[in-house]
Amino acid sequence: MIVYWLCFILFLVGLYGVITKRNLIKIAISLSIMEFSTFLFFTLIGFREGGVAPIVDPADPVKTYVDPLPQAMVLTAIVIGLATTAMLMSVIIRLYRKYGTFDIREIKNLKG
C-alpha cells in the first residue's frame, strides 16, 4: 500500500512546482513529473504478484499474466506526453525570443 502513497506524493511534488514556481522551464519540468507519476500509478494498478509480461507463449499457456489494459493506455499516453512537452518547449522558446526572460512575472509586466 505504501507504493501508492509514494506515487501520490510524487504527484503532489509536481503540483506544488506548477503552482508556486515562476520560471517557465520549471513549470514544464513539474508538468512532466506529474505525468510520470500518473504513468506509474496506472502500471501499479495492473500488477499481479508472480505474474509475467503479457506475451502469450502458445506452447506453455497456463500462467499468471499482468493486466494488459493499463499498459495499453500508458503506451499511448507516453508518446502524447512527448508531443505536448515539445509543444510547450516551442511556446517557451518563442516567448524567450520575444521578451528575453523565462520569468512569467516579468512577461506579465511587459505586456502592451
Binding site: F39, L75, I78
Partner: peptide, 11 residues
C-alpha cells in the same frame, strides 16, 4: 520491475 517491457522500451 512491474513486467511492462513495452513501456520500458518506449519510455
Amino acid at each position: 520491475l512491474l513486467k511492462a517491457p513495452d513501456l520500458a522500451i518506449v519510455q
